[in-house]
Amino acid sequence: MKPASFEYYAPTNVDEALARLAELGYGVKVLAGGQSLVPSMNFRLAQPPALLDLNNVQELFYIRPTSDGGVAIGTMTRDSQVEHDALIKEKFPIIAAAMHFMAHPQIRNRGTFGGAIAHADPTAQLPAVVLALNGRMRIRSQQGERWVAAEEFFVGPFTSVLEPEELLVEVELPPTPAHSGWSYRQMERQAGAQALVGVAVMVSLDEAGKCRSARIAFLSVGETAVLARQAAQMLTGQKPTAELIHAAAETAANVDIEPGGDIHCSVEYRRHLAEVLARQALTEAFERAGR
């Protein structure tokens, strides 16, 4: 469990990093917190010829409010910093709640917010949470900058729209509307273990107490974090009664997702969990929205 040899680059600013990416393309892998990359290198599952270490790029470490009332998170911001940040706690308590389930504190001290997004692990919490929050990604290369919505960003297991010469530099989260509610629920076999199923839910109510919007994002049920669109549609414009929530959860589990089975969780159990968790999360989120 020793990595193969590799070249190592440690730029101190984004321009330098982008130049290196342009030069090396597929021959370089970006090192953020290293909590997934380094183990896979030790297992020799990944043998990148070169690493581009962003840990000295100070301009990528930040959490700041945006002009529209949202928050922008620099790609290198440590997970634990996001988890305990006052602004995040105030505006997006779902992030801190979900992070509680994300591996262990030691790993969150080193792991980075952008790293977890760029890694695009379908069993990870942050892609689903950012999807539920309708976040967008700021991507830079020497050619310029582009923005990609979370819904477009994740394309497959450990695969995103990022091109080899591109760098994810920021995740931006839009403000949540008034009368919003959130919930994060998951089932795991032990603290810090991979979620068998997880769900991040964001809802908002209109003045009449009807569901204005619902975003239900699952993890560990497919090739990427998955939005349950039909379930959301069932809820939109309706009073979120217990019966409706039950029906929406059932639709989410049986129509919106196509989960696979593995040694810890059969397809049937996974659908069962998805339904239970979606029901619990929707109930809790609507309760919070109504307060």
Partner: peptide, 11 residues
């Protein structure tokens, strides 16, 4: 008795 197995037994 994993959670998955418990699920099967209950079913």
């Amino acid at each position: 008795l994993s959670p998955n197995r418990l699920f099967e037994l209950l079913e």
